[in-house]
Design a protein around this nucleic acid. Structure first.
Length: 525
DNA sequence: AGACAGGGCGCC
DNA sequence: AAAGGGCGCCCTGTCT
């Protein structure tokens, strides 16, 4: 999280020419991006980075971690710090009101179609870095945001490379128990085929349960008017096909999304290796491409099994977004509530006669912009005792409705409203988006600072284990020493909170569990 | 045949 | 238990 004392070293790998090794141009720069010496040429990028990392451990400046770091990891080379021009550039571009760049592939990494010349030269990289430094320097929050974002790109690449320990055997057992034996070719698993038969029998005719129109049509023939096939709509219908349709949906989801084909594609050597895309969500949250890493269904988590002699420390930040709202709004009573382990309890006591469920609905309504009568009424009650917190998000909502841009705590801008927004757009939807953005984006920043600090600690204390999973407000460390890993998580929470909010009263308690299997044994929340 | 939109679900 | 924000992914159905 430090951003000033290390030397920055720009590294520009030469274009790959089909050989195993490619060279690189390397030059040290000062914090403004001015070269401190000549440009050096190295014949082997990974060897050069490995040596310089061991010697001085600079902050590496490169076009994008996603394109440079994987080949270093494959060669067994890891770095501690970087400045990722791609994700930093995206943050700065959106702050200038430009639409977020396509994050699939950095534009400057795309090789020209016909020329064999370097896709990008050192001068261009130096100029780009200098321009970014000019935009960042002097803004401590933006320094923190971009440093954390870059650290996140390293963590993402490392987690994709290392993978999440996963028992293919346990997963196959789950699939066979639930779906039947693996089908051949394009056949349906036996359990799904049976349910399809039963559904057709219940309707007295062949019905494809995956087709909304066929299902709606089938109900209509039975004299049942139904507007959609959503679960909660179907559940209100008294018909023998309903439980079969819902069962079919569950089985199909498992088969098509996390079935044998998913296992073949994403799990090798008992590691699930998803592709994380840091900062791909407008709020700064990560996305994943393929494998559905950030939507691992609960049912599948019993297949996430630690290696023998090791375990997972699973830690998620409880009630993160309401606590973030307390911190950024500075609402005195909300901050006091967020200083306790269960922030809903004091809010319930203050505003809802001790009814915790009502307090929770009211707070979530504030965060998301409740529209229903019930939740709005609760929101009005909440406002009496917590006016500063409620006003904070309502101001963001009104700014959005006017077509304005809002910012997170560290200065991440939301994308501009689309052209013609006032004439065609749903101003209330935009208001709900900007209202939620200021909280969700700040929560993502807090989590990113936590991740960066935790990563830093785990690198300097290898006994403590490795990061293997990160999902919005949750980290998983795979470790042979869970007590040590837990203590680093606690320390990282404190550092992240201080970096973001200084000496705040708001607490960010982590629900922490040590397990050999990722799945929860029990419980809610 | 391939792109795209919308319904639906499940994750935070 | 609601209902709001953000995603990814699967399916069908329709368009080119």
């Amino acid at each position: 999280m430090e951003h000033t004392v290390w030397v920055r070293t720009v590294v520009v790998p030469h274009p790959a020419d089909g050989h195993d090794r490619r060279g690189a141009s390397v030059v040290d720069v000062d914090p403004s991006g001015k070269p401190l010496g000549p440009i050096r040429e190295y014949p082997d990028t990974t060897a050069a980075v490995a040596r310089l990392e061991a010697e001085s451990g600079p902050r590496w400046v490169w076009t994008s971690t996603a394109t440079v770091y994987p080949e270093l990891l494959r060669a067994g080379v890891r770095v501690r710090r970087c400045h990722d021009l791609s994700t930093t550039g995206a943050i700065l571009a959106v702050r200038k009101g430009l639409p977020p760049p396509d994050t699939d592939e950095p534009v400057d990494e795309r090789p020209g179609l016909f020329d064999a010349a370097p896709a990008i030269d050192v001068e261009t990289v130096l100029a780009r870095f200098a321009a970014q430094r000019r935009a960042i320097t002097g803004d401590a929050r933006l320094e923190l945001l971009t440093a954390a974002e870059s650290a996140g790109t390293l963590a993402a690449a490392e987690m994709s490379f290392d993978g999440l320990p996963f028992s293919a055997q346990a997963h196959r057992r789950l699939l066979e128990d639930t779906l039947g034996p693996r089908p051949l070719g394009h056949e349906l698993p036996s359990r799904i085929a049976e349910v399809v038969e039963e559904i057709s029998a219940a309707f007295g005719r062949a019905v494809n349960p995956a087709s909304h129109t066929e299902v709606l049509e089938a109900f209509r023939r039975e004299g049942i008017a139904v507007e959609s096939t959503r679960k909660h709509v179907l559940e209100r219908i008294d018909h023998p096909a309903v439980p079969l349709l819902l069962r079919h949906r569950d089985l199909s989801k498992l088969f098509s999304t996390n079935g044998w084909h998913w296992l073949d594609s994403w799990v090798h050597d008992d590691r699930f290796r998803p592709v994380y895309v840091p900062g791909a969500v407008v709020s700064g949250r990560w996305a994943s491409r393929g494998g559905g890493a950030l939507q691992i269904p609960k049912a599948l988590r019993s297949s996430v099994v630690a290696e023998p002699g090791r375990s997972f420390v699973v830690a998620d930040a409880g009630q993160l977004e309401p606590r973030i709202l307390a911190a950024i709004s500075g609402d005195r009573r909300m901050v006091a509530a967020a200083g306790t382990d269960d922030l809903y309890a004091p809010i319930a006591a203050t505003s809802f006669g001790g009814d915790r469920a009502k307090a929770k609905v009211a707070v979530l309504g504030v965060l998301y912009g409740a529209t229903s009568g019930d939740a709005r009424a609760l929101l009005t009650i909440l406002r009496r005792s917590f006016p500063t917190a409620v006003d904070f998000v309502e101001r963001a909502a009104r700014a959005g409705e006017r077509g304005e841009v809002v910012h997170s705590w560290l200065g991440r801008a939301c994308p501009p409203a689309p052209d013609g927004f006032h004439s065609h757009g749903d101003t209330h939807a935009r208001g709900r988006f900007t209202r939620n953005f200021v909280v969700q984006a700040t929560a993502a920043e807090w989590a990113l600072c936590l991740l960066a600090e935790l990563r830093r600690r785990l690198i300097s204390d290898p006994e403590a284990g490795e990061l293997v999973f990160f999902q919005h407000d949750e980290v998983v460390v795979h470790t042979g020493n869970p007590e040590l890993a837990s203590s680093h998580i606690t320390g990282a929470v404190e550092v992240a909170t201080r970096l973001m909010f200084g000496d705040t009263q708001v607490r960010f308690p982590m629900d922490t569990a040590v397990r050999t299997v990722y799945a929860e044994d029990s419980g809610d929340e």
